[in-house]
Each structure stands twice: as structure tokens, then as C-alpha cells.
């Protein structure tokens, strides 16, 4: 039971984590993440890595789509830009991995701004279709700019190093990814404590009155596109260095949709939602695979249903959450917390 939550200063009331209980759980989570690779096997660490990369990408997309209300079907394309930027810088110019991380972000942000620039005049469907075009054109570029991308064969990158230390093993790279994910989450949380974040939400809720309140729509929509694709670019950079290879089919339209699904399932406009959605949408296919594996004795063919079944469940999750729980897992989490807050005295 948590009651007696009084503040004496405005600073205390403006803090993100307002009570000692919350801070305690946060430290516990950090500690758990720290020791995780010591206890978990290679497979679990790999899953954690993939999930954390997805968190970075989902936080970025949620800034744009959930918080600013600008739908994007080009997120995978921007991730691809980041991935290729990193791979090309590493293989052709010998740039250290850690430097390619911000550069990948910037390259993707530049693309985001170019796509976003016409967005001041476009809304809803038109913007959605324009970002779809961006995705198609970027995919085409990945395949056909052979001299740079090696076409469908893709680019192989060596295991990343950091200040001479090899990050070849899963656990070593795990820490890099976790730090990037933690910074991404913190930075976007910070954003919403200031005028920039408020402006984003105002544009989503009512862009016309936002402008009459003094918000420069063009500037802030571009900010949203730049930030969102910066995160996407970093996620792409992490991904290529995790998998050690980048090919065009790693960043198809379907991946853009998958990221949209993450933030819908997690909760549009919620940072916690981005995290929950990324975890959920990464783990569900794995659980499904294990579940089908249990029935393999009955029907050896059953694994051939795995992929289409995943596709159906994926679609059903999007539809189901939008129809029944439009605020996503974050809202379910909030309700569960509210329930336990006064527990066991519910009335």
C-alpha cells in the first residue's frame, strides 16, 4: 500500500520518479539488467539484445506517431539508413563502431527531415502514403545502389570493438545496447518535462490551436521527424553490429508495420508503452514457436504453420488492441498498479 505522498517543493513534484518506492524498483531493475548476462545463456542474451534494440526503435516511432500524431510507414527505411551508414563507415572507411552510432542517427535524421519537410502541409492519410513512398524508395536504394550497398548480397561487418576491447560476444555487446536503450528512454522522458514535449502533444491533439498558442508547427514537426529517425538510425546501427550483416530484406515495409504494432500494443504516446510493446512483440513470436514445438510429436508438419500463424496473430493483436484496449499495455499496467496501490483496502 502506498499512501502519504506529500511534496514540499515544486521540484519534488516535477521529479519523474516521485516516491521512494518507485526509485527502489528502478534501482532493482537496473541491478537485474546488470547481472542478467552473468546468469543467462547465449540465447537469452541474444533475445535481450534484440528486444533492447526494438525498444530504441519503438521509443523513436512513438515520439513521432504516438506523441506528435504523425503516422509513419517509413520507420524501417530509416533504420536501414542507419544500418547501412554504420556498415559502410566501418567497412569502407574503418571508422570505429562507437563513432558510427551517432553518425548513423544523424544520417537517418537527415532522411527523416527530408521526408518530413512536406508534412506540414499533409495530414493523416496523405502523410501516411508519403512515408510509404519513402519506405519503397529507400528499399529500392538499398537494393540498387550496388557500389555502396552491394545490393541484395548486403554488407558484412566485423565484430565491433570499443576502445580496443572486443565486443564480439553477446554479453559484451549487451551492455552497449542496454546503455543506448537506457539513454534513449531517459532522453525522451526528459523531453516531455519541457516545452518541446508539450508542443509535440499539443500538435497531436489540436494542431491549429497549438499554432495559435505560439507553436511553430513546421519546426516542431521537423523536430519530431528528426528525433524519431535519429532513434531509428541508432537502432539500425546497433542491429547491424549485433547481426554483423546488413541486407535490404532486413528492413522491409513489414518491419515498419511491426514497429507501429509495437507502439499500438504498448500504448500510443506512452514511453512505458514503447518499452512494453517492444518486449511483447519480440517475445510473442518466440513463445509461439515454443508452443508449436510442444505439438511437434502429434504433427511433424506443424512448424510449417509457424510463419502464417505468426502473421495472423500479429494482425489480430493490432486489431484487438485497437478495438478493445486503444491505450495499450501501458494502460493495463496503470490499472493494475492503481488496483494494488490501495490493496488490500479497495474502498
Amino acid at each position: 500500500m502506498r499512501i502519504g505522498d506529500f511534496k514540499e517543493t515544486y521540484a519534488a513534484d516535477e521529479a519523474v520518479f516521485r516516491t521512494p518506492t518507485v526509485r527502489f524498483w528502478l534501482w532493482a531493475l537496473a541491478a537485474a539488467l546488470l547481472v542478467f548476462p552473468l546468469l543467462a545463456g547465449e540465447y537469452l542474451i541474444y533475445m535481450a539484445n534484440i528486444t533492447a534494440v526494438a525498444v530504441v526503435g519503438a521509443v523513436g516511432l512513438n515520439l513521432l506517431t504516438g506523441c506528435t500524431g504523425l503516422i509513419s510507414l517509413g520507420h524501417a527505411g530509416f533504420m536501414g539508413v542507419g544500418a547501412y551508414t554504420s556498415a559502410i563507415l566501418i567497412t569502407k572507411f574503418g571508422v570505429p563502431f562507437i563513432l558510427t552510432l551517432p553518425i548513423s542517427g544523424l544520417a537517418a535524421a537527415l532522411c527523416g527531415v527530408i521526408v518530413g519537410a512536406p508534412s506540414l502541409r499533409m495530414k493523416g492519410l496523405y502523410l501516411c502514403i508519403a512515408t510509404l513512398a519513402a519506405q519503397v524508395i529507400l528499399e529500392f536504394t538499398f537494393v540498387h545502389w550496388e557500389s555502396l550497398t552491394h545490393g541484395i548480397r548486403g554488407l558484412n561487418v566485423p565484430a565491433p570493438t570499443l576502445f580496443g576491447l572486443s565486443l564480439a560476444s553477446g554479453p559484451a555487446f549487451y551492455y552497449v545496447i542496454m546503455i543506448v536503450a537506457a539513454i534513449s528512454v531517459t532522453a525522451s522522458r526528459n523531453l516531455f518535462r519541457t516545452r518541446v514535449g508539450r508542443a509535440f502533444i499539443a500538435i497531436r491533439d489540436r494542431d491549429i490551436s497549438a499554432q495559435l498558442m505560439g507553436i511553430n508547427l513546421f519546426q516542431y514537426k521537423l523536430y519530431a521527424f528528426a528525433l524519431s529517425s535519429f532513434f531509428a538510425g541508432m537502432a539500425g546501427c546497433l542491429m547491424v553490429n549485433l547481426l554483423k550483416v546488413v541486407t535490404p530484406e532486413q528492413y522491409p515495409l513489414h518491419l515498419s508495420i511491426q514497429y507501429l504494432a509495437m507502439i499500438i500494443v504498448g500504448g500510443l504516446g506512452s514511453i512505458l508503452g514503447s518499452i512494453l510493446g517492444a518486449i511483447f512483440m519480440t517475445i510473442v513470436p518466440e513463445l509461439l514457436r515454443s508452443a508449436l514445438g510442444l505439438f511437434q510429436g502429434l504433427d511433424p508438419q506443424i512448424m510449417s504453420y509457424l510463419f502464417p500463424l505468426q502473421t495472423v496473430i500479429f494482425g489480430a493483436l493490432i486489431v484487438g488492441f485497437l478495438v478493445f484496449e486503444p491505450h495499450g499495455l501501458a494502460e493495463m499496467w496503470r490499472r493494475a498498479k492503481a488496483y494494488f496501490r490501495l490493496w488490500p483496502f479497495e474502498y
Binding site: R195, R198, D205
Partner: peptide, 25 residues
């Protein structure tokens, strides 16, 4: 702005008089 609290709605009014840029935010 329906997605914000009363306090954030009021704070938003001050937008044009605040200076914080993207990176400091």
C-alpha cells in the same frame, strides 16, 4: 489539449516565452 493535464495545458501557454531547445530538453 485533451491528452494533457490541466497543469501541462497551462504551461503550454508559455511556450513562446520559453527558451529550451531540442538538445537541452
Amino acid at each position: 489539449f485533451r491528452g494533457m493535464t490541466v497543469l501541462d495545458n497551462i504551461k503550454l501557454g508559455r511556450h513562446a516565452h520559453l527558451r529550451t531547445g531540442l538538445l537541452p530538453a
